[in-house]
Design a protein around this nucleic acid. Structure first.
Length: 825
RNA sequence: GCGGAAGUGGCGGAACUGGCAGACGCACUAGAUUCAGGGUCUAGCGGUCGCAAGGCCGUGGGGGUUCGACUCCCCCCUUCCGCACCA
């Protein structure tokens, strides 16, 4: 353990504040949007302003900063902005305990975070800071709402919604994780409420389709979005109801099993349930059905939709007609059919659907096999589970004998010709519920007028300012309801007294467009400047946590597409490249205050300096993977920086006196080799961990060098300069300091990234591995330019080869140029 | 169940397009330093047999392709993540 009283390995505590102040005074990160250099928009997901950052949060900012600094040195005009996703529940909940207004605590947290970020040496263009809870920002969030409203993409409807009893507000589907509130982990219940939605379902197809454009997004994120959107292709089939003049529509993806339908099932919420039951004259049966419907509707949504939940149902006493064979099909109501997916009515095929199988077994409903397994015929009476695979059609009229796959299309076509059904597409994606019954959010810009109805607040009257003097105790009704000054207004259309919408918007609306605002953050006539935005976006590199794979990233893509359709932006996707970094784990768990495993950066920075924390964070492992934080590892990084410091200062004074095991030519070659390696690591998927290890190798090699000639001085200086330049994006403070100690003036971030010379990288002599039957038996050092025939001769002449082959005939000699020779005997 | 990612020393992890497995770091061992500690430097560090030279085994398991497999193919096991009664 490094003792706190020991001398520092290098004067980090002096140089770090010095260079941080220098960067600020030199405006290194302030961007002139009109600069001639090619643009590079490097964006780190803006954080919620929490009280204190830990090293896990740090990884995010350090990665982004390393990318930004690297691109700066590559000659790009780099935009690296930062802001705060400042509305939201935590501040409001804290306020209930501390009595400090959310605005006050949020702004204080922002200041503290900014201080921490600057201590880390993270460079941003702070002149572009956006704070989503300030009126000059949320004014435009409200404007976005109006843009959706104009196109019918924001609407209000009564429906079953997720309710968190602890947060006292509704939640979007995306915010319910395993049946629990994403924020507070309380089990989510349901309520019937009249709420505002964004019609994201209208964009389901395009959100899916345009994933083709997201070449540089992680596969897992794309897969998660794909699953969430949940597109399925099937057929909607109409079943005439006996004794009625209407039909029940069923959605199925397995139209090939149509001849196996032995009953229909309605969701208890299906609109036709009441109508069907009204015709039932037996009052006891009717009462039983009504009781069942009431019971299921009252059930907890989450429990009801869990897979293991027992299937229950009642027979309605009514029948439908099978559209293909005219059979009489009983109509049931059951808990396992969901009202919101498909048509809320399912054609049941017990033989080929496991859920229908279980239900049919329980209620002794008939089954009919219509697809034979390729492995042999199955008897309905002996089946233990449904056969859900493909096979050969049987008992299916004219379609018998076809493969089920073939029959699928033929039956669908037949149905379309005969107007029985039509092919349709279904999505699992639901509309985005954006109303929240809490205080700390952007008010929804709608006014309710007795004569005009719901009227959008005109753009000119934005922002609808969130009043500050509000009792925001959560009651399940928006606290703004208790503020007559806010609620009472005049109808923008007729001027008569009217009431404002009192709900606020989901904070994910705030964060779904902030990346546009950074381009013209102080513009008070429009949300963003289309021309400038089209120049600067899509974002070249977006960096953030994978926890936003669905929520924020799907919402942003959606909002961007809405703006694209209205020609406010000229690009269909907002983020060209996405990088999702892994979590930092401590003692096997994610860092959190409640677990008490939080590693605070403040003490570490004090003890080892920010560069050490940065270096270790980058070196800890592949940035996209989770990694376990280790204090020992931090010390290793610190020791390396000490070694780097000593090396560069000694190299400058020509004091390198290593054992001389690395010669002049070799050191030059290594220098260029490592410039190449580090550059490739950064150009690829941010392999910072291997980039750092390469730099370590070069420093190690330099310590093996001995300066004897003037040429040696030149070479060691080149190595030293290269090491400093290459490490600058990772450890900017020490790099600046060493750069200046090497006699250079000005910021190292105004320097160009080093270029390697192909000439210097080339080896004159190479070591060839000699394998016999794939096993390494010998090595041979030969000139790099050696001809193959010459190499063969040298190999066969090798003493070790002669010994191992021992007169055995050589069957084959495989030569991999520049690498190895394998001898087959 | 479906989908995704992964499995390499005591640990974190390297390994280009099939070509020397274990780079770099941590931990550890021994030694050096007028050496309390820390720091620094030198050497060692997958397993196993051997005094050594060297041999054999080794990238979750089992098969296969190949002159050659951590890498490609087939089967299986395990872990993590996402979705999940979506018809």
């Amino acid at each position: 353990m490094t003792s706190p009283t020991s001398e520092p390995l290098y004067p980090f505590s002096e140089i770090e504040p010095k260079w941080q102040a220098y960067w600020e005074s030199q405006k290194i990160f302030q961007v002139d949007l009109g600069d001639v250099r090619p643009k590079y928009y490097c964006l780190v997901m803006f954080p919620y302003p929490s009280a204190a950052l830990h090293v896990g949060h740090g990884r995010n900012y350090i990665l982004g900063d390393a990318v930004a600094r690297y691109k700066l040195m590559r000659g790009f005009n780099v935009l690296s902005p930062m802001g705060f996703d400042a509305f939201g529940l935590p501040a409001e909940n804290a306020a209930l305990k501390t009595n400090i207004h959310p605005k006050v605590s949020t702004l204080a947290n922002i200041e503290r975070m900014k201080h921490q970020l600057s201590q880390w040496g993270i460079g941003y263009d702070w002149s572009r800071e956006v704070v989503s809870c300030l009126a000059d920002y949320y004014k435009w969030t409200q404007w976005i709402f109006l843009k959706l409203y104009e196109k019918g993409l924001a609407y209000k409807k009564q429906g079953t919604v997720n309710w968190c009893s602890s947060c006292q507000t509704v939640l979007a589907n995306e915010q319910v994780v395993d049946g629990r509130c994403e924020r507070c982990d309380t089990a989510v219940t349901t309520r019937e409420l009249d709420q505002w939605y964004f019609k994201i379902t209208a964009y389901g197809e395009r959100l899916l389709e345009d994933m083709k454009l997201l070449e540089h997004w992680p596969e897992r994120v794309k897969t998660m979005q794909e699953n969430w959107i949940g597109k399925s292709t099937g057929v909607e089939i109409e079943f005439p109801v006996e004794g009625e003049n209407y039909k029940l529509a069923c959605y199925t993806t397995r139209v090939d099993t149509i001849f196996g339908v032995t009953y229909l099932v309605l969701a208890p919420e299906h609109p036709k349930v009441a109508e069907l039951c009204a015709e039932i004259h037996d009052s006891a049966t009717r009462a039983a059905i009504e009781a069942f419907v009431r019971k299921v509707r009252a059930e907890d949504r989450i429990e009801r939709t869990a897979e293991g939940t027992a299937k229950e149902g009642v027979f309605t006493g009514r029948y439908a007609t099978h559209p293909m064979n005219g059979e009489k099909i009983p109509i049931w109501i059951a808990n396992y059919v969901l009202p919101e997916y498909g048509t809320g009515c399912v054609m049941a095929v017990p033989t080929h659907d496991e859920r229908d199988f279980l239900f049919a077994k329980k209620y002794r409903l008939p089954m009919r096999m219509v697809i034979d397994s390729p492995k042999g015929h199955l008897e309905e009476s002996r089946m233990k589970e449904a056969f859900e695979e493909e096979g050969v059609m049987i008992n299916s009229g004219a379609f018998s004998g076809l493969s089920s796959r073939e029959a699928w299309t033929k039956i669908a076509e037949f149905m379309e010709r005969n107007k029985i059904g039509k092919r349709t597409v279904n999505f699992r994606l639901r509309d985005w519920l954006i109303s929240r019954q809490r205080y700390w959010g952007a008010p929804i810009p709608i006014v309710y007028c007795k004569t005009c109805g719901a009227v959008p607040v005109p753009e000119k009257e934005l922002p609808v300012v969130l009043p500050e003097n509000v009792q925001f105790k959560p009651t399940g009704i928006s606290p703004l309801k208790d503020n007559p000054e806010f609620e009472n207004t005049k109808c923008p259309q007729c001027g008569l007294p009217a009431k404002r919408e009192v709900d606020t918007m989901d904070t994910f609306v705030d964060s779904s467009w902030y990346y546009l605002r950074y381009i013209s953050p102080r513009d008070n006539v429009r949300a963003f400047d289309t021309l400038a935005v089209n120049q600067w976006l899509p974002v070249d590199q977006y960096i953030g946590g994978v926890e936003h794979a669905i929520l924020h990233l799907l919402y942003s893509r959606f909002i961007n597409k809405v703006l694209f359709d209205q020609k406010y932006v000229g690009f269909p996707e907002p983020f060209a490249r996405l990088f999702t970094q892994g979590m930092i784990i401590k003692d096997g768990a994610k860092m959190s205050k409640s677990k008490g495993n939080v590693v605070s950066p403040d003490a570490l920075i004090k003890k080892f300096g920010a560069d050490t924390v940065r270096l270790y964070t980058l070196f800890i492992g592949p940035p996209e993977k989770d990694a376990e934080w280790s204090e020992r590892g931090v010390e290793g990084a610190y020791r390396f920086l000490g070694r780097l410091w000593r090396f560069v200062t000694q190299a400058h004074d020509w004091k390198i006196t290593g054992a001389g095991t690395v010669n002049t030519r070799e050191l030059k070659r290594m220098t260029h080799e490592i410039i190449k390696k580090v550059t490739e690591d950064l150009e690829g998927d941010f392999h910072f961990n291997t980039a750092v290890s390469s730099i370590m190798e070069l420093v190690n090699a330099c310590y093996q060098f001995e300066i004897k000639t003037d040429e040696d001085k030149k070479i060691i200086l080149e190595a030293a300069q290269s090491v400093v330049l290459l490490s600058a994006p990772f450890v900017p403070h020490i790099a600046e300091e060493l750069w200046s100690r090497l006699g250079r003036t000005g910021s190292i971030f105004r320097e160009s990234w080093p270029q390697y010379s192909k000439e210097a990288v080339r080896k004159e002599e190479i070591e060839i591995v000699i394998q016999i039957l794939g096993k390494v038996r010998s090595r041979l050092t030969v000139p790099a330019a050696i001809s193959e025939s010459e190499l063969r001769a040298r190999v066969l002449d090798d003493a070790k080869v002669k010994e191992c082959t021992d007169g055995k005939p050589i069957k084959k000699l495989i030569v991999v140029p520049g690498k190895l020779v394998n001898i087959v005997v």
